[in-house]
Nucleic acid binder design. Structure first.
Ligand code: FES
Ligand code: FES
Lengths: 143, 143
DNA sequence: AGATTTAAAGACTTTTTTATCCTTTTTATG
DNA sequence: CATAAAAAGGATAAAAAAGTCTTTAAATCT
């Protein structure tokens, strides 16, 4: 469903969202240590997210990654789309075509609603929403 | 969610289910042509399914693949488990651990029920169920 | 028995994904 | 200005997934 890379990206962004601010930026090294994501690989993902303005960074001393208020409004779907490309989530479960209610494949009914609902959820859920859940103890960060 | 290989496997099994019988076995070559699955690769998958008794085959003239009544009772989950291994579907969406309601990850609530429901559906839906759907026009086979 | 048809099996190649390493650029600070 | 800290970028390596090719074994038919 999600690639490893997307999972890493979401984990990393959430870690930054919870543990940093503009005055208190966080290093790739530290994210890597806390999330167990290999540092160099993580850096690549963060680069990509930065390039698309989904997260923010500055180089040099006291630099690192952080999220602006705008960044906190980014949806999970935006993250996944940047990392995995756009159509990973909208294609048919059996790989026959774009998932199409008009011409449902054999397993479509097993998952159809469910899948579009999942994508809708990814689309409407922002980083900030998840941070709220974590802060309120509704869900957990990390291992 | 499902690997390419699993998608191929389900497609191929359904094709066999709809288009063959014990008197009218079907060749890997023909399945390949109709489903667009590369022949050699398909053969590998079919071999694996045969080895686990999820489908049936005989070699030699008038041989090929077919399904017994028992094979038709096989669940989709059995197919996926043989091809992808057991824990692809039960692991956490963020790859943190086995998905655990007691200790939900940040995206668990977005997908939690949904995912277990999907797995339950795969478990309780048999090849024959899907064939019925196809025959009744509720869903479609192939492209 | 011999020839032919077909799946099974194994070795191999290619592509994609994941991961690492090394260099360059930017920024802050003494 | 020199130095150090950090991300950005590019090249490469390793692992996994997808796909191919060749040989072997089983079944049938003449
Ligand atoms: S058509 Fe295949 S999942 Fe919707
Ligand atoms: S705990 Fe992560 S999906 Fe359930």
């Amino acid at each position: 469903m999600l690639s490893n890379s997307s999972k890493y990206a979401i984990n990393a962004v959430l870690y930054v969202a919870v543990n940093s601010s503009i005055e208190n930026k966080i290093l790739a090294k530290d994210i890597s240590r806390e999330t167990q994501i290999p540092q160099a690989y993580l850096s690549k993902l963060m680069q990509e997210l930065t390039r698309h303005n989904l997260i923010s960074s500055v180089r040099g001393p006291n630099g690192g990654f952080y999220l602006t208020d705008e960044n906190r409004g980014v949806s999970l779907l935006q993250i996944v789309n940047v990392i995995d490309g756009d159509n990973r989530l909208t294609s048919c479960m059996l790989g026959l075509h774009a998932c199409d209610h008009q011409h449902p494949c054999a397993v479509h009914h097993l998952v159809g609603d469910t899948k579009t609902r999942f994508v809708e959820n990814l689309e409407k859920t922002t980083v900030q929403d998840l941070v709220s859940d974590i802060k309120s103890g509704k869900s957990f960060l990390g291992i």
